[in-house]
Design a protein around this nucleic acid. Structure first.
Lengths: 232, 232
DNA sequence: CATTTCCGAAACTCAACAGTACCGCATATA
DNA sequence: TATATGCGGTACTGTTGAGTTTCGGAAATG
């Protein structure tokens, strides 16, 4: 609604630093330029808590339902502290999404079991599935804003969709390289199946995305789409 | 946010009156009970315009971005007229979704070409695809409200998802009955593929849902999931 | 210890919007 | 014609929430 023109900010790595352990905080600092260093210094360890709180509220109430006071209260911070670090609610949200933990700590660890089915099954872990659902909820929370804010839409896609998509693409490409699946297979299309079906189930149908659901999806949709019978 | 407790209203057929030509207006009337009939009478033909305007704004800005003034202005009506007919913004939206035209005027006309692929292809019509995208946008617009309002979520699912799902289920069941596909096929799961992938493409990726996209989806995902080769 | 900047908390300003009241006119009944 | 209601329009009321300011105190520097 309010346009939110700021095209700077979000100086996150975001891109491809798979090993980033720390809660990479990408906050604008009021110029730690050079000569000045006086008085109490900003406690940047709070950034992570605040961004985390913002993501929580976002997942629960959506962008429009979220208020700065909610975030501040949940982070046990003052509202002024938030505004000292981010110029607006929109910027806070953009930064929160941009700094989202790569939940796929296993992002670096792409499974390699020798078969496509084995690789896909290896991606099913309760923790991953649970975190994926949370991400979807965050995505839904900012969906109304995404159409008005291409910048945010891009960041959200990169942070929420890309990690899993990238892994899936890799698995499929390897399967193609070793001749397990045909070179004609549209990897991009296949990679969309899982996020699309999971999102539909969680956000539209309101049903939980269980490991059983993902398993059935792999055997009954994804592998058939790769022209592989699921009979191992 | 505001809870919107009213569990009455929405006295729509909604269910299965496939032949309803008129823009079924389901508006609460202030008791046209019995003896009274004095003064100018409410022009119910305006209901359709107002609900249509509400759906337009909903699709464009989402529930939170939509204001009553926007709807009134687009419908060239006075704000008071809206509040004379619906007690609140929430009720208006619920009614608008509930009264949504069955876009599938072809709902009564389930294709029957003799083959599953033929039936599925017959469902691809530019008009249908276009209307489907609009419905998805409306769905996205009320998504934030759906979690707070189970009633609305139910109505939305019934109005937006069910029509197409029902047709698809029918086609699949017929294919099963005639032995074209195995009895083991999970019809419910297959029926979700199209809405899930279309929604993902339109709302998450922001790409248009073209007839070509749907065609590719049928041949590369849906039919393989039915264990049918797409080679006609 | 003086100064500066941060902190959490609370009070404040200001704009947007849901909902209401009223106007002047149109349209209905009796 | 008198009365009653709906109509589009506009002005009003009340609340909510973004963003700002202020305050007492804490942590850093000199």
């Amino acid at each position: 609604m309010t346009q939110l023109d700021l095209n700077s900010h979000a100086k996150v790595p975001v891109a491809e630093a798979p090993e980033s352990e720390a809660l990479d905080s990408a906050v604008l600092d009021t110029e730690p330029s050079e000569l000045t260093k006086l008085g109490r210094r900003r406690d940047h360890s709070r950034d992570a808590d605040i961004l985390q709180a913002a993501l929580d509220v976002l997942a629960e109430t959506g962008y429009d339902g979220m208020t700065i006071d909610m975030v501040a209260a949940r982070a046990k911070a003052g509202k002024a502290t938030l505004y000292r670090r981010w110029p607006s609610k929109g910027h806070l949200v953009v930064d929160a999404v941009a700094c989202m933990k790569s939940t796929d700590a296993e992002a670096g660890a792409v499974p390699d079991t020798g078969t496509l089915r084995g690789d896909l099954l290896a991606m099913i872990k309760p923790h991953t599935v649970e975190q994926g659902e949370r991400k979807l909820r965050i995505m839904a929370g900012i969906s109304s804003m995404m159409s008005r804010e291409p910048e945010l839409a891009g960041i959200a896609k990169r942070q929420i969709l890309e990690p899993q998509m990238t892994i899936t693409r890799t698995l499929l490409q390897r399967a193609k390289d070793r001749g397990e699946i045909s070179p004609d297979i549209d990897i991009e299309q296949i990679s969309c199946i899982s996020p699309a079906m999971a999102g539909h189930r969680a956000l539209v149908l309101g049903k939980p995305v269980t490991p059983e659901f993902v398993l059935s999806l792999i055997d009954n949709v994804i592998l058939p789409a790769c022209r592989l019978s699921n009979v191992r």
